[in-house]
Design a protein around this nucleic acid. Structure first.
Lengths: 169, 169
DNA sequence: GTAGTTTGCTTGCTCAGTCAAGTAATCTTG
DNA sequence: CAAGATTACTTGACTGAGCAAGCAAACTAC
């Protein structure tokens, strides 16, 4: 299981740790999305957009600010907004204070949708992530996540992952 | 913090835990991919394929078996193999034992590629995941990941994430 | 041994995402 | 106050993934 020179392979223990994490990285996101998609035809990402808008004053945010909150590129957000605008859950308007900016505003229908989706999403997170863990493990998971985040940010050529107040319940 | 019946919102602590994890779920996969893509134009998924083939007898596996190992759908694998076949790193041949099956075989060039990529990938995993954690946290991460995996598998309508021996290096 | 089913993969269609180019509004500078 | 940046998006071209339909090889049953 090893040949040449470098840290060519990970130690046995580390390898199993990594394999366990890798599986979670692969399976957890779709598992978290599934109920939302099934019941509301809404992805986690789109849900996050509605959530952020609902929190905002006047239920409106500039595209660029919303992109920050949603940890998204502007172009990804632009297309996502187009999609949910098509379903009548948000509206775009030109920002009167700066004609370059676009304001995304949550509609009444969008708010209703969000209020139906929220408990479903909370339930999924609880069921898949929180409930299986002990209290100590939840604390550890928080700390572990923060350390990994820090390592990513410190990486060569890393561009700040945005303000993030983002991800939600 | 609750209205109707269900857990409409998460408790404060749980919410920060979840937010921390959600950020990792979003940022870690691309961060893990970056060096491999930059240096070898190889995604983690493609790397996994080469890795699995290298481990296999004769450096060959049936598509369906390889799909299991790579935790992938057959169609995703089929396209991925087409891509890396185009670069000369694998070859497809009809299985002589069963004409329906296709054998994917690692080429000499593919093996060389893998041997260059492996230490890079090991280094990235070490840097981003292992090194930032204490030994206790690594153990905890393993246990936490396994518990979350179990919760996912136990979920309604879950179809077994395949044999998995998969994720690698 | 041939008709019908199943298996193992491939491929067409569609969709979400990225990158880079395009566009309109605003700011800057002489 | 115009010419040239810069900002804030939007959009076109392209890529990778999923789903479902397609296709050929192998089994199964009479």
């Amino acid at each position: 299981m090893d040949h040449l020179s470098a840290p060519n392979h990970l130690a046995e223990d580390d390898l199993t740790t990594w394999a366990a994490l890798a599986t979670v990285l692969e399976w957890l996101p779709p598992a978290l999305d599934a109920p939302l998609v099934r019941d509301f035809d809404l992805t986690h990402f789109e849900y996050g957009i509605l959530f952020a808008l609902a929190e905002a004053p006047d239920h409106a945010l500039r595209m660029s600010v919303l992109a920050s909150y949603a940890n998204s590129s502007l172009s990804r957000l632009s297309r996502a907004i187009s999609r949910i605008e098509g379903r009548g859950w948000v509206q775009r308007t030109r920002d009167p204070l700066d004609g370059r900016s676009t304001l995304a505003t949550l509609t009444e229908t969008g708010l209703e949708m969000l209020e139906k989706a929220t408990p479903v999403q909370a339930q999924t997170v609880t069921e898949l992530v929180l409930e299986p863990l002990t209290n100590a493990q939840r604390r550890q998971l928080r700390e572990i996540s923060l350390r990994i985040q820090r390592a990513i940010r410190e990486q060569e050529g890393w561009q700040p992952p945005r303000p993030l107040l983002s991800d939600n319940d």
